[in-house]
Amino acid sequence: MDILAISLILFGLGLFGALTRKNAVAILMSIELMLNAVNLNFVYFSRTLIDLSGQIFTLFIIAAAAAEAAIGLAIILNLYREFGDIDVEKAALLKW
């Protein structure tokens, strides 16, 4: 149970960060936080239900998260080149 509570708190922190931070790198970090909260959940349930597929899923998510971080940083780098800043509120060209 405790572990589920930790994972919930971790996810909530990640979501809050992703919704409120202006800094794109911080948002990326928040997303990593949420992913890891999910991983924690998977591992916990794998252990309680004695089913290894949860752990395999976690390994895949870690790999995907690493790729996502690489792509996200590349996007942020291009964002910086374009606007001279990594504030997401400034990158709001796709509006009405």
Partner: peptide, 17 residues
């Protein structure tokens, strides 16, 4: 309805949540 299209990614994410 076009007003909803703010261009801010975080707004969209909020809507999703």
């Amino acid at each position: 309805l076009r007003r909803a299209q703010t261009g801010l990614v975080q707004n969209y994410l909020l809507f999703v949540v």
